[in-house]
């Protein structure tokens, strides 16, 4: 693992979301248990965008959904604006959730193929009985306009008539309908063409400014995250490797895993020479994660200490925390 620890947590009034010791486990066949998220603590300030970065299977999506209690973490606290969502009764949770909305990876799967775009975007308003029918339609039109779609053209069509990028816009419009204070974006651009990715990333930035959102942005690609985030958390096999400001992490990554992730981003320059050997192999199974530091099996700097003892997060530079016995700094 990288590791657990609380050194990176901030004690300030504008922390909107504070996750404390989140554990999510799934039972798989044969009585085995997948440790999807192992004791993660992190906080997000108002107006901040926290990027959660890692490979498939590192638990980043599970962590994102655990915030919304979909499903709820096995143990741990999810403090949102001072309320622990894990302790709320069902009915209260239902209304508390509306303050946090989610945008999903697969733009096609996240829209019901049998509903028109108008119905999809208006659905959250319908659920909560907000306004009259006419009010709701006006609101839907406004939302579609804001995400760059022409309401006249799209309102009565169905999602399968649209491209991936347009579906993602529809999905964003829906997520904003209840005027949430926090938006969780789960790989919102990884299913899209590069040329469309930039449009959606810009749109998310615009929406963040317009609606004053706090964001959690989940991605496997450090390049995508760069433009949108104020704080980065790198995850590996259910643990935090490194947390810090983008400036610090991109210019001098302290964790060997972060540096490997940076090296694998394709560079659109044929003359570019990679300075490190690319990360080899794939993460081990989360059913039986390695002892000590979970990254040690693929780490170029692994030592016997790494197998024996789990590294805790500690500050290596201002606002840069790393869970590694042998950091690169």
């Amino acid at each position: 693992m990288a590791g657990s620890g609380y050194a990176h947590l901030r004690d300030s009034d504008d922390v909107v979301l504070a996750l404390r010791d989140i554990v999510v486990e799934f039972r798989v066949g044969g009585g085995r248990v997948v440790n999807a998220v192992s004791r993660i603590s992190i906080d997000v300030r108002r107006g901040e965008t926290l990027a959660i970065v890692g490979e498939s299977g590192c638990g980043k999506t599970t962590l994102g959904k655990a915030i919304l209690q979909l499903p709820a973490p096995n143990t741990g606290q999810v403090m949102f604006e001072g309320t622990d969502l894990t302790k709320l009764p069902k009915e209260q949770l239902r209304s508390a959730r509306t303050a946090i909305q989610m945008v999903f990876q697969d733009p096609i799967s996240s829209l019901d193929p049998r509903m028109t775009v108008g119905e999809i975007v208006g659905e959250p308003l319908w659920i909560w009985g907000r306004g009259s029918e006419a009010d709701r339609e006006a609101k839907v039109r406004e939302l579609l306009n804001n995400v760059g779609l022409d309401p006249e053209l799209v309102l009565h069509r169905r999602s399968y008539e649209f491209s991936g990028g347009q579906c993602q816009r529809i999905s964003i419009a829906r997520s904003l309908a209840l005027e949430p204070r926090m938006l969780i974006c789960d790989e919102p651009v990884s299913a899209l063409d590069v040329s469309i990715q930039a449009q959606i990333l810009n749109l998310l930035q615009d929406m963040k400014d317009r609606y004053g959102l706090t964001m959690v942005f989940i991605s496997h690609d450090l390049a995508v995250v760069k433009a949108v985030s104020n704080r980065i958390m790198v995850m590996y096999l259910g643990k935090i490797c490194e947390v810090g400001s983008p400036d610090a992490i991109y210019s001098k990554p302290a964790h060997h895993y972060t540096s490997a992730l940076l090296d694998s981003v394709p560079v659109p320059d044929p003359a570019y020479q990679r300075n490190n050997v690319a990360l080899q192999g794939e993460p081990p199974s989360p059913v039986a994660p390695p002892t000590g530091c979970r990254f040690r099996t693929r780490c170029p700097a692994a030592s016997p200490l790494c197998a024996a003892e789990e590294p805790l997060l500690r500050e290596v530079a201002p606002d840069q925390f790393v869970a590694c016995h042998h950091p690169r700094l």
Partner: peptide
């Protein structure tokens, strides 16, 4: 499908 998760997150 994710639209079901979306509906749950909207409080449906």
């Amino acid at each position: 499908r994710e639209f079901v998760v979306a509906a749950r997150s909207m409080g449906m």
